[in-house]
């Protein structure tokens, strides 16, 4: 097995395929109090993230849209990771997750999000893995212009 094959298996782990085939929290949310759109013009990925926030806590989160396996799985994993967290915790997690993919990550338990670590070896795919998070961030701050990954 070449180094590249190893990297590819790190990128496309079974958890990724699972969340790509059956994304969790994949529906719209008429009762959402926050939402934002995200768009990666480079590959046409498009999604909307919905939130219901109560007392600064993310009570419910969902998304709809279409994209590559990495972006769909990342969005799905994100919804699982942020449910029940406070807004401040989520923003801190986004920062740390971004560092996990691009930089020196802080010591912390990333839980299932750690399966996306394989993206580190594929700089062209970092945008796929972070689009949902940029969109979530926009939803939190009430920015209704479509989120980009630039």
């Amino acid at each position: 097995m070449s180094a590249m094959d190893g990297n590819l298996r790190e990128l496309y782990q079974e958890v990724i395929f699972d969340h790509n085939r059956q994304p969790r929290n994949f529906h719209d949310m008429p009762e959402a109090d926050h939402h934002a759109d995200g768009h990666n013009p480079l590959c046409g990925d498009q999604l909307t993230v919905y939130l219901r926030i109560n007392n600064d806590v993310i009570e419910d989160v969902s998304f709809v849209g279409h994209g590559c396996a990495i972006s769909t799985a990342s969005a799905s994993l994100m919804t699982e990771a942020v449910k029940g967290k406070t807004v401040a915790e989520v923003e801190a997690l986004f920062k740390d997750f971004h560092a996990l993919l691009t930089d020196t990550p802080p010591e912390r338990d990333f839980g299932k999000l750690a399966v996306l670590t394989g993206v580190r070896e594929f700089p062209a795919r970092v945008k796929c893995a972070t689009l949902a998070w940029h969109t979530l961030h926009n939803a939190l701050i009430g920015d209704h212009t479509p989120a980009h990954t630039e």
């Binding site: 590249m4 094959d5 990297n7 590819l8 990128l11 496309y12 590959c43 990925d45 994209g67 590559c68 396996a69 990495i70 594929f122 062209a124 795919r125 796929c128």
Partner: peptide
Amino acid sequence: IHPHDLGTILDS
């Protein structure tokens, strides 16, 4: 298979 995933795998 999304074209972007395909591109990455073909590149490998």
